[in-house]
Design a protein around this nucleic acid. Structure first.
Lengths: 215, 215
DNA sequence: TCGCGCTGTGTTGTGCACAACTGTTCATCA
DNA sequence: TGATGAACAGTTGTGCACAACACAGCGCGA
């Protein structure tokens, strides 16, 4: 795929995941094409991919609409993400490298500065980068691709529900998890790092969704 | 998505998975459009989706080419599929219904007739339908979608490698697994059914890939 | 006043022509 | 003879015009 096209898709996806386009928003192909200085054709290619990812839905004669956040579906996705997180430490775990540790240190540093600014969007970006770092611990491509796909589907609700929680507290919990992960990786225990990640996702799921699920 | 468009995608995907289009085959947008009585535009939409699924790759000025089967990647995908198969019995298992048992019986019947005809393509279709039946045992949508996506990626190599094995023996093994699954479902043990499925995938992986993986 | 259909506006879907690009073939020249 | 490059055929990518469709608003009639 061309770089420009992949970029189009990524930019739109980020806007949806960062809630710049809230669920229910109608995206205009014409307007977006104009904004990106292109025609509708390549833009439609990007929207098509977003539709396959479940982030938008195109209806003939109506519009392209950002999908709603469906709580039961989000819960199911989180349940699966939990399991996949643990698998990252089991399927083809990659030996811990000095470079990986340096990357993690950089992420921790970003987390420290985050405690000052307390910007939810920055938090969301850091969360994504930390997630991608976690995926780098497995050599199983299929697992990486699958996990990322599922993450994209839950990123929105994470940010949306974050506003109901204590942002400072959430950042602290996040920092502690990164430190704990660092300790595990320092002694080369990739499996433990993956389990820490699973614990994190599980508690996130509880904090975000508890009390709002029907049944 | 329109039915016609979804259909286009499904037909092409099936052709690739059944090896009507072998890896390396160059697909002509113009020819395909003509065959389906449409223009290139909707056809390109279908090809785009196939590209996102990893079944084809479009190169500007060159063509749209059916991707090669990459053995290490297939192995990694199988490893993940194993785990997901077991998860189907753990995450939101669905109570066994009489209708589900009837469906399974119909599949077993198809397997019996397969022993006579011994057509690999029919075997492949039965394999897919049995796989989809297995997914119906979980209520977790994300798991279903993910598993199906991964299955699609391994369907080709399964059929390709099947020709090296004893087809009659493979059909017998397959029939035995379905019978075993039936016994598990008769006593309402969805979890056991999922484990049987995992065993099946694991042994399939070994039989198909053993001895050909580098390293 | 209510119901019905028409019409206007805006949206996505399709078809077509052309641009951009690649690989090949063949002629030309050192 | 080998190398080089220019022309060519064939492919995917892009832009644009129009078709197909949904919905809201309005007018008309019972």
């Amino acid at each position: 795929m061309s770089d420009r096209r992949a970029n189009l898709h990524q930019v739109l996806r980020q806007r949806i995941c960062l809630l710049d386009y809230a669920p229910g928003t109608r995206l205009s192909e014409t307007d977006l094409a104009q904004e990106f200085g292109t025609s509708r054709t390549p833009l439609r290619r990007a929207l098509a991919r977003l539709e396959d990812e479940g982030l938008v839905r195109s209806l003939h004669g109506v519009g392209t609409i950002v999908t709603d956040i469906d709580l039961p579906e989000m819960d199911a996705t989180y349940a699966l993400r939990e399991e996949l997180a643990e698998l990252a430490g089991i399927l083809a775990p990659v030996p811990v490298s000095a470079k990986a540790l340096a990357t993690l240190d950089a992420l921790i540093a970003r987390g420290d500065t985050l405690r000052q600014g307390r910007d939810p969007r920055d938090f969301a970006r850091l969360n994504l980068d930390y997630f991608l770092f976690g995926l780098s611990l497995t050599g199983n491509d299929a697992l990486r691709e699958t996990s990322e796909r599922l993450y994209i589907r839950t990123a929105r609700i994470w940010l949306h529900r974050l506003e109901r929680l204590d942002l400072g507290e959430e950042i602290d919990i996040f920092l502690q998890e990164m430190h704990e992960t660092r300790r595990a990786l320092m002694i080369g225990d990739t499996r433990a790092a993956a389990l820490i990640r699973r614990v994190h996702i599980s508690m996130c799921r509880k904090r975000l969704l508890s009390g709002d699920l029907p049944g």
